[in-house]
């Protein structure tokens, strides 16, 4: 996976609750058999009008949010399907972190596996960040090493993440290789089960 240590970037606000994976990548784009190139489909039905032109009122189409790499959203972000295409699309578009009051479990897992950091902060702080990002160009630093979110003027909040996920993210570890180190334990487990089921 892509390591994540400290990232500073422009914030794009999409402060709505229950943004589901069908909105993040609509299903008509799930038929590709590659892992790459999903950024063009991110938030497709919101980003483009039915005739295919970009919808100028959608946040990612506003010139001032060009190059945004931190998304701030409402609670239960990523609810719905298990499609990993959702974090693939966010990461491919250029996002490195999503800040929200809460995330759906499967989405958060999938995001971490792709070096996209889900940052859980209190609702009030998330709302504050969203408001500031709506008012003017707002840049945040997300520091996984320190577990801290800072803006150019001050430290805003601390955040928690599962220590194992943090370790994998900081070091960009291949989790499958880690599990395969336990091959003898897996084989022994299978042998115990085989005996029991005889």
């Amino acid at each position: 996976m892509q390591p994540f240590r400290v990232h500073t970037g422009l914030v794009a606000p999409l402060y709505r609750p229950n943004i589901d994976t069908d909105q993040i990548v609509p299903k008509q784009f799930l038929k590709r058999i590659e892992r790459t190139g999903f950024g063009q489909f991110l938030f497709y039905d919101w980003r483009y009008l039915p005739d295919g032109r970009p919808d100028p009122s959608f946040v990612l189409n506003m010139p001032r949010y060009r190059g945004a790499s931190v998304l701030v959203a409402g609670r239960n972000f990523g609810c719905g399907s298990s499609r990993e295409h959702a974090p693939w699309a966010l990461a491919d578009y250029g996002f490195r972190a999503v800040i929200a009051p809460s995330f759906a479990d499967i989405f958060a897992n999938n995001a971490i596996k792709n070096g996209l950091l889900p940052v859980v902060l209190d609702e009030e702080i998330v709302q504050l960040i969203a408001t500031r990002a709506e008012q003017s160009a707002y840049t945040l630093t997300i520091d996984l090493e320190q577990g801290e979110v800072r803006d150019p003027n001050a430290s805003l909040a601390r955040f928690q993440i599962d220590p194992f996920a943090r370790h994998c993210l900081l070091n960009g570890l291949d989790e499958i290789a880690l599990t395969l180190q336990h091959e003898t334990l897996i084989a022994a487990y299978e042998e115990r089960r085989r005996r029991r089921d005889l």
């Binding site: 499967i106 596996k113 792709n114 599962d162």
Partner: peptide
């Protein structure tokens, strides 16, 4: 429970998943 594609690959390769 449902898993993402990285975890599908993990289970295919190891028949295991790291889980809290």
């Amino acid at each position: 429970f449902g898993i993402g594609t990285s975890e599908v690959e993990h289970v295919l390769a190891t028949q295991c998943l790291p889980q809290r």
